[in-house]
Design a protein around this nucleic acid. Sequence first.
DNA 1: CTGAAAGCGCTTACAG
DNA 2: CTGAAAGCGCTTACAG
Lengths: 365, 365
Amino acid sequence: MAHRKTTLKDIAELAGLSVSTVSRALKGDTEIALATRDRVGKAADRLGYQPNVFARGLSTQNTRILALMTQGLHFSAFYRQCLAAFEKSAHERDYYILGCSVAQGHGLREYLPLLRGGMFAGVSFMDYSFGDVQVLDLSREVENAGVPYVVTYDDPSLPEDGYHIVRVDFADQARQAIEHLLKLGHRHIAMVAPWSRPQFLNGYLQAYSNTDLPCHRPELYNIPVGLIPEEGLMDSARKIAEEVLNLSPRPTAVFVPKAIMAGPLQFCLKRAGLRLPDDMAMVTTKDVRDYEYLDPPLTSVSVDIQEFSEASVETLVKTIEGGNETPSRIVTVPSHLIIRESCGSATGRGWHGLERRKHGKEVVL
Amino acid sequence: MAHRKTTLKDIAELAGLSVSTVSRALKGDTEIALATRDRVGKAADRLGYQPNVFARGLSTQNTRILALMTQGLHFSAFYRQCLAAFEKSAHERDYYILGCSVAQGHGLREYLPLLRGGMFAGVSFMDYSFGDVQVLDLSREVENAGVPYVVTYDDPSLPEDGYHIVRVDFADQARQAIEHLLKLGHRHIAMVAPWSRPQFLNGYLQAYSNTDLPCHRPELYNIPVGLIPEEGLMDSARKIAEEVLNLSPRPTAVFVPKAIMAGPLQFCLKRAGLRLPDDMAMVTTKDVRDYEYLDPPLTSVSVDIQEFSEASVETLVKTIEGGNETPSRIVTVPSHLIIRESCGSATGRGWHGLERRKHGKEVVL
DNA sequence: CTGAAAGCGCTTACAG
DNA sequence: CTGAAAGCGCTTACAG
């Protein structure tokens, strides 16, 4: 099918040098004469040289292959954008990244032999709940395999010491979102948050208490949702929309930290006859490009994906290269409010701000 | 972070044998005394041995890692089920499989260094159009890297010789679907097919000509669609629904080889006020479990995923292990009609068959 | 500034 | 039936 792959030896022969020199030249070792480095580079290009990842990995004990593990990767636009950003950060450090979708035992069968087989130089666990037993098992596997890892996206059930954590402050996100909505005059705000992230509720309550406004029955206005299978997205959204609309008094805004539901929920609310943003303001999290194309475009509070990925990759690479002695490291990536039109913004279509209009339409789901 | 990985040497020491013997024992070489094999197996288990993929790959020149490349992997339920099935087939042969989502140049940047770096023992190109220049470039890259590959899902623009192809007969799928619909009494049938797969139209026409029924303006009733970005799915579906419903005479059935659109299209048709299956029958392709949970459950014509994956992995592994001399191989995987309720089947809710009812409802999209 | 040599963890002819 | 040895393609002390 094809020519044998070109190796260091081929280059060495072509350039009349030893394999060791070629190896050093290629990695830009300044001990090697500049002229030599040049010559080697040219020869390598001419032969289309690409280092054999396996040989390199064996020799250095660093495969330079990182795994980004999360559940429902590729399902969520946010995860996919993260993967792309991780990739960018990894490449800058001459690492590769492979996205592994590992959810509740599923996908593990696929990656475990590779993990144990020394494939990965490090793994980043993204957006897992370490309260979940399955996830704990997974992390134990990784630990047993002797693979360095970082936990990105935090988790409350994780002790701080002994872990490398790139943290997103969920409570702060909720606080920012709710304060924004309170400032716009909303008083009854529903929240659709992941079951496993109680921090959002803390932030929600904190925002109210910061303003001295009364917080009406938070136990009802906060709607926790579990893991949603891809196929069940619209169905869940419809149910949630129903729940939101049946609250009394009817909320005028909804904060959706369960970001995967934001689009579907918006769709369902519109189908239910609501005019957005007038009848219902919306804020979500995990900002992605797609929010701009939704109607109305979604306001969100989110980490900057690139900044976040950068922090995660940097921490991971430091851990890998620093060896066992790397002190455990906690980084918190800040969250910012990104205002679009879903709360009635100035952008594009006038400022709706405080004047919420009553709607008399029949709501049909 | 963790104990050094256990190696063959560790087992050898524990069992009081040489590394070579341990290596052979572990792969079940019958030359090795059964008692020895046993002892080695026990020792390996006790130490939690897992062979280092890199060392093995280096030594055998076969990394045993396969790549399944397709665009929009994980986006489509079908692709994901395929990945799972490939995985199963691969594992039976002691291979691993990694899913790579590579679309129009995108994702390539990520996988190319790994590909060139000798990571993959083989790659399966799934459901690509080799008429596309980008795809040709990709295949050339793979070829230059000296990596064996198979083309699964066929392509008309591919010459047969010199390729290993696992083929799906698109024309036959269309013929089966349309014949099914014609038999049920439908006379005006819309088709939503991928732009890049003209074979579907051939099958469509053939079904009509087999029955001597007149085929009304196929150039209008066949609606070609291009690549649809994930975010644009519902929008596209809405547009397509509109197009279908504006055809005159209004079709009573639609065949959707662009399978990713089937669910969304069904949803839109329902939202447009149609009663399914009475007002519109539907057949699609790429059968997945999810079809069973849709309302009404979707009839489809499809290859059996496991059979298909098995054929693909088998062909690929033969090519890898057979070396350059493997004769080019073409396998066609048969397609079957899977009848559910979306054409008004006997299952569950009575037989609607020939009596199509007129509907007087307003159609709102 | 460059090269010879050992080693990463495995496999596989080749001896015995 | 088992072992010593070479080799896969790279990296990296260690000499010179």
